[in-house]
């Protein structure tokens, strides 16, 4: 399995990467960890003419907290995110999810920016970002643009990102009472179904919630029915009832060897419940 030929430029700065993107036009693709893109290139499902390497850019690195808002640079690897004490303390869902992506080697190379921009239907982090109501920071020729995660993920492998834009990072409010639960597709280790739940808790009562699913459908999306049912629910006892209709509300559900539509809908409810229970257990 060998990719087609391409030109390679290593960008020295985000600004340089942007200008290279503009020069390259539709032929150009950004490369960071490469763990979404390179497998596709090897199978010749992607044949970019120009790769712009942004993997080593310091501007895209770092995990910071400022006034309760946490920002993660796009080039941070899953391993770095998993190991972050800051995240473990203030947004454990993110560290834990990153710690269970793929395998050790994939986590050492794969980046959060790449995972979000590629938007594999079975990727874990998109659901977590939607549940956390994260903002995706994009930089283009006209400056910075911020998109809410739930608007960013649009369809299968499709996100609100122009050809000449770069994902520079994500930011979200610190949140301890959030958890992610997934049913792993055992071969690929992607999520057959994964649900992230972020709860606002008042004692044992849920005042509001954001719940998002990945794997089940074309792209990560909110489970608004579950969110509604959670408002005012007492947890963890009310989790099962709130989650019960989770799968039924999805418009489109993936279907393959590993899970039929019916199974994925059912598992959406199961993993919504598990995520809610785990999140409630965190308070």
């Amino acid at each position: 399995m060998i990719p087609t030929a391409f030109e390679y430029r290593r960008a020295g700065s985000v600004a340089e990467a942007l200008s290279l993107l503009q020069e390259g036009g539709p032929e150009a693709k950004l490369l960071a960890g490469g763990h979404s893109l390179i497998p596709m290139m090897k199978q010749r499902l992607a044949e970019p003419g120009l790769l712009i390497d942004i993997g080593g850019l310091d501007e895209l690195r770092g995990i910071q907290e400022d006034g309760g808002e946490i920002a993660i640079g796009a080039a941070m690897t899953h391993a770095e995110i998993a190991a972050s004490d800051l995240l473990r303390a203030q947004a454990p869902i993110v560290a834990e999810t990153a710690a269970n992506i793929g395998d050790a080697q994939v986590r050492n190379r794969g980046t959060i920016g790449g995972s979000l921009a590629h938007a594999d239907p079975g990727a874990d982090l998109p659901a977590v970002m939607v549940a956390l109501d994260a903002t995706i920071a994009l930089l283009g020729p006209n400056g910075e643009r911020k998109v809410q995660a739930e608007d960013f993920f649009q369809d299968i492998l499709t996100v609100d990102l122009a050809e000449d834009e770069i994902v520079t990072g994500v930011c979200f409010q610190a949140c301890r009472s959030a958890a992610y639960a997934k049913l792993e597709q055992r071969a690929s280790k992607f999520a057959l179904v994964g649900v992230a739940a972020a709860l606002s808790l008042d004692g044992g009562t849920c005042s509001s919630a954001r719940v998002a699913v990945t794997g089940a459908s074309s792209h990560a999306q909110r489970l608004s029915g579950v969110e509604g049912a959670l408002a005012g629910a007492s947890l963890p006892d009310g989790a099962a009832s709130a989650a019960s209709g989770a799968g039924d509300a999805l418009d489109f559900v993936n279907e393959d060897l590993h899970g039929s539509e019916e199974y994925r809908r059912a598992m959406t409810a199961v993993f919504a419940r598990r995520a809610i229970e785990a999140a409630a257990g965190r308070s």
Partner: peptide, 29 residues
């Protein structure tokens, strides 16, 4: 393999394990 699953190509890249079939040599410059 072709899809970054099997790990037979694992090396340490700047001290961390990486699947060298999913890294371009130019990236390791």
């Amino acid at each position: 393999c072709d899809t970054s699953q099997c790990g037979a190509c694992t090396v340490l890249l700047d001290g961390s394990s990486a699947k060298s079939c999913t890294v371009f040599a130019v990236q390791a410059d």
